[in-house]
Write a protein that binds this DNA or RNA. Structure first.
Lengths: 195, 195
DNA sequence: ACTGTGTACTTAACAGTGTTAACCTACGTT
DNA sequence: AACGTAGGTTAACACTGTTAAGTACACAGT
């Protein structure tokens, strides 16, 4: 294993054990049995190191979503499965999820798009499901890519409130999550009032 | 002005100018013309200082929402106004908004509830609108408090994606926000298919 | 008038942070 | 044999949050 890989592996361990906020160059270096400055031979700075972890986490999230997508279900069920898989991943792997949104390198705006093509693939996965539902006249959407982002954002918000411990203590977490998913999905489907 | 107030005021200035991540005890102290240790006479630690700023921001957000609520509109319109006011506040005051969600004191779980009663009032503002809509058979909700949290969470997610610059460059921001609000509101209303 | 108490502040220090400049050393190529 | 370079090192800079100990001063009780 190259030192670069070793550094990432050690950083990952630290991420899982203590969260991304407690990753420090010196701590990583110590566990990789090198000096802190050596890391700079393989990563431009700390942001780039963390970004490597972000990429890994996005990939993992993407594969979880892909695994949750049953190809024969109807689009509404598929969307629900995707939402629940997303929530499950986030709550089961809070550290790995958080780093995706919490790390914001300074140069983010002008960051090479290639780095984010993996995340686009995830969006397109959602967009496809929405497209299929639109064809079947199940979903009431205008632009499916925008809708995919909207769906993602809404679920992220729900997850984020739970992870940030901002949920009212009176509200049971599971009930909140279930009801949130219902509302979110309902925002996309065309509803037919049973006459 | 007491030193405590002066410290908060200076911290606020720093928050607005550089964001919450760049607030440091020594920087605050320097601008308040005292030493860093003096801050500890008025705040238990940095988290408590930041929490004071969080409270201020929540209060401000709350009053913006209250101002946006036209008492004579129908609940659907009211909900839309609240959502848009929320988004406007967050995008116009990113630093003040971010600190609300980004600061997570270690002892958050067991944090005194009183501190968060202001934010509860905001939730209850939303919950009331939802309740009124429920009475008028406009909204399809189970528990209105949970729905209020859900709505909040969804909007936060949408805002957060924009603020974190995670929005696809192909997607125009305004269109995304409009469509997101539409979807979110639609998730709450009972739709009647025009026969 | 003298002593004591408490408040509000300071200085000095600890243990850590990201990052850079300068240096060293071993290996592969010419 | 000489050179260049890849991959590491040490030392240092300028920060960070936080604590222990010390100081200066106002006010109260005797």
């Amino acid at each position: 294993m190259s030192l670069r890989e070793e550094i990432i592996s050690v950083s990952r361990q630290l991420l899982l054990k203590e969260g991304f906020g407690k990753i420090s160059m010196r701590k990583v270096a110590r566990r990789a049995d090198v000096t802190a400055t050596s890391i700079y031979l393989h990563f431009k700075n700390k942001d780039e190191l963390l970004l490597a972890l972000v990429e890994e986490s996005i990939l993992k999230l993407g594969s979880e979503l892909k695994a949750a997508l049953k190809p024969d279900s109807d689009p509404i069920e598929q969307l629900k499965d995707l939402a629940n898989a997303y929530i499950r991943y986030a709550l089961d792997n809070p550290q790995e999820y958080e780093i995706i949104y919490m790390v914001r390198p300074e140069e983010m705006p002008k960051y090479p798009k290639e780095k984010f093509q993996q995340i686009r693939k995830v969006y397109e996965l959602i967009a496809e499901v929405i497209s299929r539902g639109k064809e079947k006249h199940l979903f009431d959407v205008d632009d499916e890519l925008i809708s995919a982002y909207t769906l993602w954002a809404q679920i992220h918000g729900v997850v984020s409130v739970v992870l940030n411990k901002r949920l009212d203590t009176r509200i049971p977490r599971e009930k909140f999550l279930d009801q949130a998913v219902d509302h979110i999905i309902q925002g996309f489907v065309i509803q037919k009032t049973p006459v």
